[in-house]
Amino acid sequence: MSSNHSASEQQGRRHKVEGPQKHIIAYVFSLVLTLLAFATVIAGEVNTMFTYILLIVMAGIQVYIQMAFWMHMKDRGHMYAIVGILTGVFVVFTMVVMAEYWVWW
C-alpha cells in the first residue's frame, strides 16, 4: 500500500478536494447498468442461463463502483476493509453454493 500523496501535495498544506464530476459519472454508469438489467428481463426471449450470468456480472460491476469509489475502498489504508469484506463474501459464497446445490440434493 504505497502512499499516493506526492511530496508537493504534502508541502502545499491544502489537499486537493475532489470534485463531484467523478461521482456523477459513476452514478450515471450505475443507472445505465440498472436500466440494462431491467430491460434484459422485460424484453425476455433470451436464454435463461445467459440472462442469469449477464445480471450477476452487471450487479458485480455496480457493487464494485459503490465500494471502490463511494466507500473509498480503492483509497490507501483500506487493507483491513478489503480483508474483512472478502472474508464475509467467502462465507456467503459457501452458503449460497450449499443452498443451491446441497439442500435439494
Binding site: 474483512g84 469484506i85 472474508t87 464475509g88 463474501v89 462465507v91 456467503v92 459464497f93 452458503m95 449460497v96 450449499m98 443452498a99
Partner: peptide, 13 residues
Amino acid sequence: LGGETVLFGTLFA
C-alpha cells in the same frame, strides 16, 4: 459490514 455481509448472505442463501 463484514458481519452484515454474512447476515444478508445467509438470508440470500
